[in-house]
Design a binder for these strands. Structure first.
Lengths: 167, 167
DNA sequence: ATAAACTTTCATTTATTTTTGAAAGTTTAA
DNA sequence: TTAAACTTTCAAAAATAAATGAAAGTTTAT
């Protein structure tokens, strides 16, 4: 396999993976492309490499910047904007974890608390509902706290986790 | 908020969450419904409660069983099949983690290994590509191993993780 | 064997999500 | 200023994913 083929395969794979995780395909592909580029990449180049429209490139680059995992760069004497991806994987994972916690876990917790707090009329159905949603709330809250704790380590958190866990 | 409203809200929320995690909405809704039911539920009831077609109910129940998080139950003297969800959250999380590792992480690892193993012609581009995909491979492999290790604990793994991590 | 009770399959339809591209907006250099 | 170089927006189109429902398939009781 030669370079171009490998690069393409990587971008496609990362894209497909993205869509299984609630991130759209193009967004994941752009991220993949930037991650393996040695230099900052212009929007034009992104469009060219991935064969996508200007609007699509613009919107997804924006979304990646909102996630905090792609940065704009300005080059001296250049009008155009260039983009680079966060390449440090610990940092990348931490940012994704934080963002998903904020966007998905926290709102879910709010609803779990709400629905688990209804007054019960003591039918088996209602008792089961309250019990299960309460357990869910506790579980998700605990998981979210662990996530928080882990992301505090930032550098090398995964290695530290391995060490803690293996012994 | 009364019971029916709370139940509906929970099912809707769980469904929306599902679609952000690569599971389809109906599948997540059925799972939510079963999880808070005190008794096993027939396909007919699932169709009725979620207002979905027979085919849809059948296919998504099947998928949930493939994931190992919903079980069939037979009632004496009943022709119909009934369904229950895994209600133990540690167990649920472990099953989901295992399944996603098998379906998504393992195949991704295979590709990462492939693409990071191309011969380099020593251009900056190729060096960066090989370096980054190699790092990704190592990172994902390490994460997958931690997942494996965690799921071995099965009972109370989350609590154990909290304990390990907080100290 | 057969018919009733039930489940699964899959071609077609429907709904949702993503992409396009042209117009509007912005920035910078002269 | 103004016009060239570039980016963003968003309504419409295209692509993708999910749902329907009727026919085919199973199972079980008699």
């Amino acid at each position: 396999m030669e370079f171009k083929e490998a690069k393409n395969k990587f971008v496609q794979t990362w894209g497909a993976l993205g869509s299984q995780w609630g991130i759209n395909k193009t967004m994941a592909q752009i991220h993949a492309l930037l991650m393996v580029s040695s230099e900052a990449v212009s929007m034009e180049e992104v469009m060219e490499e991935l064969q996508i429209s200007r609007g699509n490139a613009s919107m997804n680059l924006r979304a990646l910047m909102d996630w905090g995992i792609v940065y704009k760069e300005y080059k001296a004497g250049e009008r155009r904007e260039f983009f680079t991806a966060e390449k440090d994987l610990d940092e990348l994972a931490v940012k994704i974890a934080r963002e998903r916690s904020k966007r998905e876990i926290k709102p879910a917790l709010k609803i779990l608390k709400e629905v688990s707090s209804i007054p019960s009329n003591n039918t088996a159905e209602e008792i089961q509902f309250i019990e299960q949603t309460t357990k869910l709330y506790d579980f998700v809250l605990k998981a979210d706290n662990v996530l928080d704790k882990i992301t505090e380590y930032k550098d090398n958190w995964l290695t530290k986790l391995v060490v803690k866990f293996m012994k």
